[in-house]
Computed example of a mutant assay.
Amino acid sequence: MTHKPRPRPDTPHMMTEERLEIQALAREFARDVVLPIANELDPVEGQFPESMVKQMAEMGFFGILIPEEYGGLGLGVFEYCLVAEELSRAWMSVAGLLARGNGMGGGFSPEQEARLLPKVASGEYLGAFALSEAEAGSDVANLRCKAERNADGDWVINGTKMWCTYADQADYIILFARTSTEEKRHRGISVFLVEKERGTFPEGISGAPAKKIGYHGWKTWELSFDNFVLPADALLGEEGRGFYQAVSGLEVGRAHTAARSIGLAQAALEDSIKYLKEREQFGHPLADFQHLRFKVADMAAQIEACRQLMYHVCTEIDSGRRCDKEAAMVKYLAGEMSEKVTSEALQIHGGAGYTKDFAVERHWRDARLTKIFEGSSEIQMRIISDELLGR
């Protein structure tokens, strides 16, 4: 599914009445539904309850970017990121779950869109992404997982994949594999649709969950493909053009990660303000101490600066304009900011912040990941510098 540009608002970054309503709806859901679940399940590394996923589907969250003709909301990346930010204020993993619906249909044919997108929008058909490998993280062109045709014309997959979050619970997996070896490494990569039963792996696929320090609520898998057979029509798009499909949605993914970073930081800020007003030392609330007050001021300023840049990037994407550099900037700045702000929040909480009695340690652990996934901070700096100085 290709995101369709929408008319640009009369005022850039304008928070329309519709957007404010969506933001308020997501904030209420995050506060009343997601946060209690996160506080209960994150400390024990539990998985999302199906009831929560169903509620998200009923609210239309999995179809924000899906056209109305397929049962979606037909909205833009701006609205998508507004919802992601609010959900991350409660649990970043749930904001990640958004992408198991909205952004997973890239490469579908018109026939597949008509058949599958209504199910995606309703939450019946959620996906996982199998791209990275042990030797192919930022270097996507280095994929070694192979797909070869057998005598019947079917595809036979062999190899391994890393960092495939939600692979077990997904209804389908978007799989990238090498179908030919060419002089230019980025060529010869193809994309496949692996349809499966939710909660299991089909014959020929096995997996081991990663031992993560955060991003709980779902499992992230290392997958092994051992003579796994796919029908000939499982190929998505043109054979050998998978690299271009992999990089086509990077602007949206980076804006989404920036939104998650900002949501984490906002939650940490709000928790810190609450703690400073309640905690007393030397006969005064901590909120009376200037050094701590200045910490809060700095945290808030950094969050708002990243938020406004995110709004700009979302507006550019929704207007159909390329913004590779700006998307890299907001992903880089928001990730770095989020780690710093959540760390400051933990410091403000003192020893209490280093316990699981307060959500701030969860925000801190999850914020650290935002500097790594969807392209590390170093990769973003390379993109920005290449735009400014040339390759």
Rank of each mutant, 00 (worst) to 15 (best):
H349C: 07
E148W: 06
N102C: 11
M52G: 02
E85H: 03
D386R: 10
A128N: 01
G74Y: 03
K325A: 13
K212G: 00
P67E: 10
I189Q: 02
A141L: 09
Y215V: 14
L250C: 07
R100C: 10
K219Q: 13
F108Q: 00
E222R: 14
Y166Q: 06
G137L: 10
C314R: 01
G350N: 08
P36W: 11
D366G: 03
R307S: 14
S343E: 07
T16Y: 08
L223H: 06
K340W: 15
G71Q: 05
T315Q: 13
A121C: 06
A305G: 07
K4Q: 15
S385Q: 13
R6S: 11
E222T: 14
T370Y: 12
V34R: 11
G390F: 00
I157H: 09
M15E: 12
L20S: 13
K146A: 10
G253N: 14
C81A: 07
P5L: 03
E251W: 02
G76D: 10
G107A: 11
E195I: 07
Y332F: 14
P7D: 00
I317N: 00
G204Q: 06
R307M: 11
S88G: 09
K196P: 00
P67Y: 02
I379F: 10
L388I: 14
M104N: 00
T257N: 15
V229T: 14
H186K: 15
A300C: 04
T355I: 02
A95E: 09
L235A: 05
P9E: 06
R279I: 04
A147L: 05
N227D: 13
L82D: 08
T342Q: 04
D357Y: 09
K331Y: 00
H363P: 01
A57C: 11
G351K: 15
G159I: 12
K146V: 12
I372G: 02
G335D: 05
Q47W: 09
E124W: 07
R279D: 08
P49K: 11
E326W: 08
N227K: 14
I173Y: 05
R365W: 08
K196Q: 05
R368T: 12
Y244C: 03
G159V: 11
Q308C: 09
I213G: 10
A38N: 02
I383T: 12
D324A: 13
A208L: 13
A208H: 10
G159R: 12
G106E: 12
